[in-house]
Simulated assay, not measured.
Amino acid sequence: MMVCHGNVIRYLVTRALGVDTKSWLEMSPGHASITRIRVEADGRFKVLSVGDVGHIPANMRTGSTGDADRDLGAPALPLQSTTPAVPAR
């Protein structure tokens, strides 16, 4: 058993799957989620689950699967334009 940050989990999953480790950037496990990787007797890895949050009540899930403290449709930070405003004519 390991308890670790999502970045470590994502990296370990990519290694277990034998894919490019840069693909961990595409994964986003929820907070307190469970990822299970089994090491077989012959040394092979088997990914059983990634980011499982089924043990957490829906209204308490945070991270990639939602945020209990804010509206799910709202962005985490206000969106700001990098384009300067154009004065009206």
Rank of each mutant, 00 (worst) to 15 (best):
M1P: 13
M1T: 07
M1L: 12
M1C: 10
V3Q: 03
C4S: 03
H5A: 08
H5V: 09
N7V: 06
N7W: 03
N7G: 04
V8M: 05
I9M: 12
R10K: 15
R10A: 08
L12P: 03
L12M: 13
L12W: 01
T14M: 15
T14L: 04
T14C: 13
R15K: 15
R15H: 11
R15C: 15
A16N: 00
A16H: 05
L17Y: 05
L17E: 09
V19K: 00
V19I: 14
V19F: 07
D20K: 11
D20N: 15
K22I: 10
K22M: 13
S23C: 05
W24C: 15
W24F: 11
E26L: 11
E26T: 15
M27G: 12
M27T: 09
S28V: 11
S28Q: 15
P29T: 06
P29Q: 06
H31L: 12
H31R: 04
A32F: 02
A32H: 02
S33V: 01
S33C: 12
S33K: 11
I34N: 01
T35F: 10
T35K: 03
R36L: 06
R38E: 15
R38F: 02
V39A: 00
V39F: 00
E40N: 14
A41H: 09
D42C: 03
R44Y: 01
R44G: 07
F45L: 00
F45M: 06
F45S: 08
K46H: 06
K46R: 15
V47D: 04
L48M: 13
L48F: 05
S49A: 09
S49V: 10
V50H: 09
D52K: 04
V53W: 10
V53D: 12
V53G: 04
H55I: 00
H55L: 01
I56V: 14
I56N: 01
P57E: 02
N59H: 07
N59I: 00
M60P: 00
M60E: 11
M60K: 13
R61S: 00
R61I: 15
S64F: 10
T65P: 00
G66W: 01
A68W: 11
A68H: 15
A68P: 02
D69A: 14
D69T: 14
R70C: 07
R70D: 04
R70A: 07
D71Y: 02
L72F: 12
G73R: 11
A74D: 07
A74F: 07
A76C: 11
A76W: 14
L77W: 10
S81L: 02
T82H: 04
T83M: 12
T83S: 11
P84L: 09
P84V: 06
A85E: 08
A85M: 05
A85Q: 05
V86E: 08
P87C: 02
P87R: 11
A88S: 03
A88I: 04
A88L: 04
R89S: 02
R89Y: 00
